[in-house]
Design a protein around this nucleic acid. Structure first.
Length: 500
RNA sequence: GUCCGGUUCGUCUAGGGGUUAGGACACCGCCCUUUCACGGCGGCAACACGGGUUCAAAUCCCGUACCGGAUACCA
């Protein structure tokens, strides 16, 4: 039997980090065993589902390059089948009509309301005490025929327990006493989550359900539905949750952008790097390797390697330099500086284009210069954005000067205001005949420094600031060379920074 | 409240009866260097607690604590 897994997000917001990892694990498992990775949009909550969310989720998956097999299933399209299934269970006596008048949904904090209600019941609550559970068939039919609204609830057996062998958490058991007669169909005829999921998973012939462990109790309910339907449940694998730094729930509402996949795409992350990071959040191959290509992840992924304990996504809200997890940033930087140039180019190009820094010559005449420049500057970059921000001066004459750099490297040495234009003269004269190479540049700059009776660092850092606008970067000799003689002279003469 | 799950450096994790408890990120120091966020070397830092089983427990069992999840006519 071929393995079929699905990723089933509800379109109530963008793709967040937890869902993304669930999608990734499903994808990796499917690819590992040569199965199918399916996508189902759980849009049965008409009030909260939006098309925009669906699009955003699809965008996120596309960015992560998690391509699905077969057509996307929209759960709402199957509502009739879900209703039919509920009616069948009713007809078979495995479900019953509940004529209890529906409570108005509490508007405030739903979670808290539920918790309060549960606590108030003080364990006194008998999950089987619904007065309509044992209503005679005749009376049930009569009341329904009279037009009285009813919900359909599953008739959970009085004695026994649900059990399944979770691929991650092992044997899971739960007494029927702890599960209420769950509603399958709302009184307005709307099918509910657990019913819809089971019906669709059966219909889609899902063999493995890989999802967050927040679904563990749902799974018991779903097993009950499978049993009522006489269908063997799939294998379940529940994933540990991804938590906020305070070990609380990571939520869109509380933590905002940092949990959204699009944030990472827009911040200049490479999908490969982020995927790699995500894969290691709750899974490990049991070895010390950290960097994995997609093919390696697929080759090494296994359900056995999934952890049971939750993982913290360690971002620092108050520190702009660590706005997201350190390791994610490090991994992205690692990819940026070690990827083959040809693989990186397709990402740098659009980045530079968007910043109006791209020139077509980089593709042919200046290809060599472009490549060596990128290889030079990418060593200290963290995201693709750095190419257009910190790297701007390499590609454009229109760049800003970092005030801190001016302060540190120029203001402190007023003589530089004269010296650097003078150095420009010197360059112009010397390199009229001499080749503009690192070696020769070093000789010229050193001689110049000695004449002025100053330290090499003063001249070099002053020049760095004028040439690149920032205080950090590669070896200054390389910078001189890659910026080129002409632009070096122009920038050394410029007084813009001094007037800033 | 009840049910379920979890607990190894700050974080991600390896290990799963005998290890100097390993790696990565972060942090700190030294080196390289004109700067630096690259690189090299090094350092700091963990088995939640209490019982038991055992010659031996981070590892197995029980309990406690703490954290998390669930408990809807949401998904």
């Amino acid at each position: 039997m071929t393995v079929r897994v699905r990723f089933a997000p509800s379109p109530t917001g963008y793709l967040h980090i937890g869902s993304a990892r669930t999608a990734l694990f499903n994808y990796l498992y499917a690819r590992h065993v040569g199965g199918k990775f399916l996508l189902r949009i759980e849009d049965t909550d008409l009030a909260r589902s939006t098309e925009e969310s669906t699009r955003s989720i699809l965008d996120g998956l596309a960015w992560l390059e998690l391509s699905h097999d077969e057509d996307i299933v929209f759960q709402s399209d199957n509502a009739d089948k879900h209703r039919e299934t509920a009616r069948r269970l009713l007809a078979e006596g495995k479900a019953y009509r509940d004529f209890t008048v529906r409570e108005a949904p509490s508007d405030a904090n739903v979670k808290d309301a539920i918790k309060d209600r549960a606590r108030a019941a003080q364990g006194e609550k008998n999950m089987r005490d619904n007065p309509f559970r044992d209503l005679s068939e005749a009376e049930s039919e009569a009341r329904a025929a009279a037009g009285e609204p009813f919900a359909i609830r599953l008739k959970v057996p009085m004695h026994g327990r649900t059990a399944f062998d979770d691929a991650v958490y092992g044997i899971q058991e739960r007494n029927y006493d702890d599960t209420e007669d769950l509603v399958l169909l709302r009184s307005d005829g709307h099918p509910l989550y657990n019913l819809a999921v089971v019906c669709d998973d059966i219909e889609m012939q899902i063999t493995h359900v890989i999802r967050g462990q927040d679904h563990l109790t749902n799974t018991h309910k779903q097993v009950l539905i499978y049993e009522a339907l006489g269908v063997t449940p799939p294998t379940f694998a529940h994933l540990p949750l991804i938590m906020a730094p305070n070990k609380g729930k990571l939520s869109k509402r509380k933590h905002g952008e940092v949990v959204s996949m699009t944030t990472y795409r827009d911040a200049g992350f490479l999908a490969a790097a982020f995927r790699n990071f995500l894969a290691l959040l709750g899974w490990s191959a049991g070895e010390e390797q950290e960097i994995y290509s997609l093919d390696e992840l697929i080759a090494k992924f296994s359900l056995e390697g999934i952890h049971r304990s939750n993982a913290v996504f360690n971002f620092h809200e108050s520190d702009p330099r660590k706005w997201t997890d350190d390791k994610a940033i490090w991994m992205n930087a690692e990819y940026i500086r070690t990827m083959p140039f040809e693989d990186l180019l397709p990402f740098i190009k659009p980045e530079l284009k968007a910043a109006k820094l791209w020139r077509d010559e980089y593709d042919d005449d200046e290809r060599e210069w472009f490549e060596s420049t990128v290889n030079l500057i990418r060593q200290r970059f963290f995201t693709l954005k750095d190419f257009s921000n910190q790297g701007r001066a390499y590609f454009s004459e229109d760049f800003d000067f970092d005030p801190a750099a001016i302060e540190k490297n120029l203001s402190k040495y007023p003589d530089l205001k004269m010296w650097l234009p003078e150095l420009a003269e010197r360059f112009e004269a010397e390199f009229d005949t001499l080749p503009y190479t690192e070696e020769n540049i070093e000789t010229v700059v050193k001689a110049f420094t000695e004449e002025k009776g100053t330290k090499l660092g003063v001249i070099m850092n002053g020049a760095r600031t004028l040439l690149t606008g920032v205080a950090v970067g590669p070896s200054m000799l390389s910078v001189f060379e890659t910026i080129g003689l002409e632009r070096t002279i122009l920038r050394l003469r410029s007084q813009i920074a001094w007037n800033a």
